[in-house]
Design a protein around this nucleic acid. Structure first.
Length: 463
RNA sequence: UCCUCGUUAGCUCAGUCGGUAGAGCGGGUGGCUGUUAACCACUAGGUCGGCGGUUCAAGUCCGUCACGAGGAGCCA
């Protein structure tokens, strides 16, 4: 008898045919008559189930027939060709041991559930086809990202989760404190006395590792972070979460064009990796989640991403004659409807928009020679919208200081960031890829809450 | 945070003109010798999201709160 996995049997069927194997896993569905029955077993190793045939000759036949969906069992049996039409092979059971029965109120049924309902049972949803596929792909994409950067000699840097830097500036932050909320120490003027708090200063959960990773960029040349990120915005959309993961590479002696090239290479690499390593899951997404998915991803793999400047994008939108709810105007940020129209209808592929007006972008982005735009880029993709935001960083000390002052920020808060511009400064660039948005793009899933194991959104941290 | 829609059995939903609650699936019981969301029969299961109002009468109309979803903003 060979202990094996469902995946191995699928991948090397010939080797196992006629052999007695031992499997263990969870019952996905069960159908029984008084003489025999069928179990679809999923052992976690593979997207697909394997069919177990059990006959009334087994001494615990009745116990097996009465098992509910979700039960854990151990099976030994012979791998045989199947008489049924829907599977090429099956296991003829020699014995079935009940390891852990599922109570009769196990919520997952053999029919379609709404994603909305499944979010309320996030602890059980990985046992469904869709979520089993999503989270295996999520795992593979994470690995592919590390593999991509590792193969190119990038150093993986762990930037802090708790940050004392109050100048990250990318949104509302979650406060980190050990103080008793009922007895917050205050100074004479009534302001909170952070010197009495754990770190002796105000601390928050990070909203970006970028400022920190730039320092390591000036040591290792090519670096990246990949970790959790927190935004306390009251955002209620299908593509925002309060806790999400972000990949932020930073490359030295590089400009905005090198940056876009890196982003394009990375996207293609991870798409290719997932198509190769999770074909069953990807086929499932194509069949049940998004009919055009595989065609679109294959097209993306084999074509160049579009690159248009912000100014060109405005012209394209104006020339399109399309009526927008928000008017298109140079100087104003592109609205979601503009972005979607650009990538989904006008160009029908991923597009980098770059060189945005400086007024609508962050202080650290490099000022272009026109003095009006900065070397920033957003990657827009069909179906998801903005998936990457990046820029060439302002490496010139004086220009950076004047941008900080222009935006009403305090230069002293950025002393270590400014030091980089005093000690061996160089042109460098980077971007942030929203990990979950990449998963959405690759799987066709439409809600960020369905690509995070236990999603955190405003008013929701149940699990 | 704003706009729109929604909340009825464990799940997915129907419920007409305001007249006191329905189906399928799931559960239970029994049957069935190759099933594929198996099938057949029987059966149990409801504070119609909460509160207030209109009415002889509210799942149904009005108000309000809570929760959820979609869209917008913020952004990855």
């Amino acid at each position: 008898m060979v202990k094996t996995s469902v995946k191995e049997i699928y991948r090397e069927t010939g080797k196992f045919m006629g052999q007695v194997v031992e499997l263990s896993g969870w019952v996905r569905t069960i159908r029984a008559s008084n003489a025999f029955g069928f179990i679809e077993l999923n052992d976690g190793s593979f997207f697909k189930n394997i069919q177990i045939v059990f006959e009334s000759s087994l001494d615990n036949f009745k116990q097996i027939s009465d098992l509910g969906t979700g039960s854990a069992i151990k099976v030994s049996g012979t791998v045989t060709e199947s008489e049924g039409a829907k599977q090429p092979f099956e296991i003829k059971a020699v014995s079935v041991t009940v390891v852990g029965e599922a109570d009769e109120d196990f919520p997952l049924q053999k029919k379609r559930h709404t994603f909305e309902y499944l979010r309320t049972i996030a602890h059980l949803r990985p046992r469904t086809n869709a979520f089993s596929a999503v989270f295996r792909v999520r795992s593979l994409v994470a690995f592919a990202i590390h593999k991509f950067f590792n193969e190119r000699g990038f150093v993986y840097v762990h930037t802090p989760i708790i940050t004392g830097s109050d100048c990250e500036g990318a949104g509302e932050m979650f406060k980190v404190s050990t103080r008793d909320f009922d007895k917050i120490p205050r100074k004479d003027d009534g302001k909170i006395d952070f010197s009495k708090d754990f770190f002796g200063k105000e601390t928050n959960l990070t909203v970006s590792g970028q400022l920190a990773v730039e320092n390591f960029c000036a040591a290792y040349r090519n670096v990246y972070t990949f970790g959790p990120t927190f935004r306390a915005e009251n955002s209620n959309t299908q593509r925002h979460a309060s806790e999400f993961w972000m990949i932020e590479p930073e490359i030295a002696f590089a400009d905005i064009f090198d940056d876009m090239e890196l982003a394009e290479d990375m996207m293609k690499y991870i798409i290719g990796y997932v198509l190769e390593n999770a074909p069953e899951e990807m086929q499932f997404f194509n069949d049940f989640i998004d009919k055009g998915l595989l065609e679109r991803l294959n097209f993306v793999l084999n074509s160049d991403f579009a690159r248009v400047t912000y100014t060109e994008a405005i012209e394209l939108l104006e020339k399109s004659g399309k009526e927008f709810e928000y008017p298109v105007k140079w100087g104003a940020d592109l609205q979601t409807e503009h972005e979607r129209y650009l990538t989904e209808e006008l160009l029908k592929k991923p597009v980098f928009v770059y060189n945005y007006p400086k007024e609508i972008k962050a202080f650290y982005m490099r000022l272009n020679d026109d003095n009006k735009t900065v070397a920033a880029t957003d990657l827009l993709v069909p179906g998801v919208g903005e998936i990457i935001g990046g820029s060439q960083r302002e490496e010139r000390y004086d220009k950076l200081v004047s941008r900080i002052e222009e935006m009403g920020l305090n230069k002293d808060d950025y002393w270590w960031y400014l030091d980089l511009r005093r000690y061996g400064t160089n042109p460098h660039a980077g971007f942030g890829l929203g990990f979950e948005r990449a998963i959405m793009y690759i799987t066709g899933m439409q809600n960020i809450r369905d690509v995070i194991p236990f999603p955190r959104t405003p008013k929701n941290a149940e699990f």
